[in-house]
Design a protein around this nucleic acid. Structure first.
Lengths: 241, 241
DNA sequence: TTTACTTTGTTCGTTATCGTACATAAGCGT
DNA sequence: ACGCTTATGTACGATAACGAACAAAGTAAA
């Protein structure tokens, strides 16, 4: 937490060529992202895009009756605000800070002009977008076919991958909101995982103690998404050549 | 069916400026798309992109255990094969002809070079991609929260919008595959809709007789997707300016 | 310390969907 | 017209998740 904020903690920024990064750097603005902060509201014009470093943003859709479901999550592997360069300017979903932390933001106009250079930056952003699409598609599949427990495993793993530690700060109530299920369902699934020795939790803190087993207990969705991210965005410095 | 095949029946092609369209035209190849044909297999390199005219393509994910779920559908409003210009070349999903008909295909390389002109064609394709993303996201939400009957309504409406007639040629078994539910569930939902006088069906043919009521009975998901498509791709000639 | 609040645990009846099995019926080829 | 295949109808118990209500255990505030 007390580490000096370095934009390169964000893998997308880290993947940029030096020339591109240096041009962007002066425009990156460090921001704290407290739990629950709403970065985008559904249908609202986006002013900034965000590059999380150690925070996680949840894209979720809130229905007319108040029920919600998570569409995808964005962490240090990505960027929040793709609709800016995709041309739509807005989306019907909301973006909320799911795990408190920090990040950098960039004025939308600047990102757009970077994108419109039609060079490496554009290619990188598009590849990331495709990875995000995969995550959304897999969420749809998962919502259809998998149990709450499997989905909880998937969710924990996806979150873990975007954090430095093996501990997630999040109440079961909030997780239930993300998954779009009842809080009691999460409680029961979490209890089972704890009984099996895969996690330890108490009042808003979840520590993963046996990650390999968690992966076994998860559905295939986690792996599909992970493999696709690695295929599209191998985390190599200067990949956006 | 006997109408002369005109690429401009595809709204995306129709939205192109004359100069762009004319450059593309000689490369468009007319193709028949019979029911069940697999246009892309999961993870397979894409050679062509497809512009459906009166056919519908279903993007679906098939799980390890054989269960499946539809991610999105592509009809005359769009293009199949976005991962070509998004940079990934492949996707983890399969593309199957859900409603037989026709379309035009274009060599992947040609589409890529068009995209890389970074002009109106690119902007149009990206806006379409965002609309497709909305459809996927909404599918995730729908899978989580809505009943089989609501989802059937949504599915019928989405399909209807992409066809000229009010009749859909498709067995309940296939619809069940798309929705990722049991065939019996579709049968029951369809029976109710028929009893209520909204549809008439028999052995692979579904005729929608009361569309307004079908919309009422559907979940909000249909409308969200439709509105977003119209916002992003107002069906005006020469919109890709 | 006491109180208030938040988070988690547990129960119970209800519902939707599932899995399986089998019955009926419509259309097709011969 | 015949039988065969495919499509649809129906029933049944099993199961997972729901909605609601309340108990218990932490944590923070008074």
């Amino acid at each position: 937490m007390s580490a000096l904020p370095d934009p390169r903690q964000n893998h997308l920024l880290d993947a940029l060529l030096a020339t591109d990064y240096n041009r962007l750097f002066p425009n990156l603005e460090f921001v704290k992202l407290p739990l629950g902060q709403v970065l985008y509201e559904s249908g609202q014009q986006l002013k900034y895009v965000y590059f999380p470093t150690n925070s996680i943003i949840s894209l979720l859709y809130v229905m007319e009756n108040g029920a919600s479901a998570e569409i995808a999550i964005v962490g240090n592997e990505g960027i929040l605000g793709i609709s800016l360069f995709m041309g739509g300017e807005t989306t019907p979903s909301r973006a909320v800070v799911q795990s408190a932390g920090e990040g950098f933001r960039l004025k939308g106009d600047i990102l757009k002009s970077e994108f419109n250079r039609a060079g490496p930056v554009q290619r990188l952003l598009l590849r990331y977008t495709q990875a995000l699409i995969t995550q959304m598609a897999q969420t749809a599949v998962c919502n259809r076919h998998h149990s709450v427990e499997q989905q909880l495993c998937r969710w924990l793993l996806l979150s873990l991958d975007r954090l430095a530690s093996n501990e997630i700060t999040m109440t079961q109530e909030l997780i239930a909101n993300m998954l779009g299920v009842r809080r009691e369902g999460v409680t029961e699934a979490a209890r089972k995982l704890q009984a099996a020795g895969l996690i330890e939790y108490s009042r808003g803190h979840i520590k993963v103690t046996d990650r390999p087993m968690l992966e076994k207990r998860s559905c295939e969705c986690y792996d599909v998404v992970k493999v696709e991210f690695e295929r599209l965005l191998p985390s190599l410095h200067g990949i956006a050549k």
